[in-house]
Every structure is written in structure tokens, then in C-alpha cells.
């Protein structure tokens, strides 16, 4: 099941997209301040996510959905999609971080900690967008809907992520870091549980 989904993705297309966006940023910004770097980084993450993950349901043709419907249960299907998108987004976050280091400089003081935050952010974004794209795929004009539904949900997540990733730029360790990490992880679990419970209703069509 997983392998099947994995094949159909235009992995290199997205990769090219990431690389060219970051290159354009480099051309216009040079080496920005840590705060700007942080903001840009999460914005790029967001747009990668919208472009790659959000398409996961929208890009499927009717015939293919029918095929999946016949070979797999709804819970297996949504779990496979979530898992795939999480992996995909984690790889993408790491690649874009490497590109950021190469082109825009590296203001990060604690690499390990930032790696963790980075992965957490990628996972959170991909989970939310996978679930929302499953909903939006049921409606017309789904690309617009995706954005309308996604952004209010994503704003608090991004706010939290930017807040905790500020920690790695300064030498002083701020309190409340673990609280926010826990909150984000909790949110992720919540989205997974909701997706598993609610997806069967969307699937029967």
C-alpha cells in the first residue's frame, strides 16, 4: 500500500521547486538576520507543504480512488497517506534546511535541537494538510478551499514553531520550550485520531 503511493509522486518536481525558491530568496536577501531567517524558513516550509502534501488527495483521479477503495480499508488508506506525507515532509524539511545553510547562512546555534523542531514542524504541517485535503477533495474549487480551511488552523502552529525555534538562535535557554513541544505533539496526535475516526465517513461515496 505504502509503496504504491510512493511511486506516483513527482518527488524531484517538488525538490526543484524548493531549490529554486530558496535560490530566489538568496538572490534577493543575501544573508539575513536570524529573525528574518527564521520567518523565511517557516514560510518556505508552509508553501512546500501546500504544494506537495495538499495535492495528495486532490491530484488523484476518480478511477484511482475507486481502485484504492476496492483494495484497502478506509483506515488503512488514511494511515498510509498520513505516514507517507509525514515521511515526505520530514525529508523535505531536512533538504530545505541544508539548502538554507548553503545559501542563506546558518545562524543556528544548537543544530540538534533545531533538527528536532524542524522535524516536528514538518510533521505537524503535513498531518493537518493531509486531513484537510481529504475534506477539500470532496468539494468543488478545492484548491481555494484548501487555503481557506488550512490557514487559520496552521497560523497557531506556525506561531508556536517560530517561537520555539527562536530558542536555537540565542544562547539563553528560555522556559516553556517543552510545554510548547508537548502541545504541538498533542495537536498532532489529535489530528491523527480525528483523521482515523472521521475519514471513513468521507470515504464512503
Amino acid at each position: 500500500m505504502l509503496l504504491e503511493i510512493r511511486q506516483q509522486y513527482t518527488f524531484f518536481g517538488i525538490l526543484l521547486y524548493v531549490a529554486s525558491t530558496i535560490f530566489v530568496l538568496y538572490m534577493s536577501m543575501g544573508q539575513p538576520e536570524p529573525a528574518v531567517w527564521n520567518g523565511l524558513f517557516w514560510m518556505i516550509q508552509l508553501f512546500i507543504c501546500v504544494n506537495a502534501v495538499a495535492k495528495s488527495f486532490l491530484a488523484e483521479s476518480k478511477g484511482r480512488i475507486l481502485y484504492f477503495y476496492s483494495i484497502a480499508g478506509s483506515v488503512d488508506f488514511i494511515l498510509a497517506k498520513l505516514l507517507f506525507n509525514v515521511l515526505f515532509m520530514s525529508i523535505m524539511s531536512i533538504i530545505s534546511w541544508i539548502l538554507f545553510i548553503v545559501l542563506l547562512g546558518n545562524p543556528v546555534n544548537y543544530a540538534g535541537r533545531f533538527l528536532g523542531i524542524n522535524l516536528l514542524g514538518g510533521i505537524s504541517l503535513s498531518l493537518v494538510f493531509t486531513f484537510l485535503s481529504a475534506i477539500a477533495a470532496r468539494a468543488q474549487q478545492n484548491a481555494v478551499l484548501m487555503v481557506i480551511m488550512g490557514f487559520p488552523v496552521i497560523i497557531p502552529q506556525l506561531m508556536l514553531l517560530m517561537r520555539i525555534s527562536n530558542v536555537v538562535f540565542s544562547d539563553v535557554l528560555q522556559g516553556g520550550l517543552w510545554e510548547i513541544v508537548l502541545l504541538l505533539t498533542g495537536l498532532d496526535m489529535l489530528v491523527i485520531i480525528l483523521a482515523v475516526i472521521l475519514f471513513p465517513f468521507l470515504w464512503k461515496d
Binding site: A139, Q140, Q141, L145, I148, M149, P152, I155
Partner: peptide, 15 residues
């Protein structure tokens, strides 16, 4: 944000 999420609900219904 909470209100925006619910506005999106109305947009979703409309579409």
C-alpha cells in the same frame, strides 16, 4: 483564528 475556522466552515458548505 477560531472565528476564521468557523467562517471556513460556512465557505465549505457553500461550495
Amino acid at each position: 483564528i477560531a472565528l476564521l475556522v468557523y467562517f471556513a466552515y460556512l465557505v465549505l458548505r457553500g461550495s
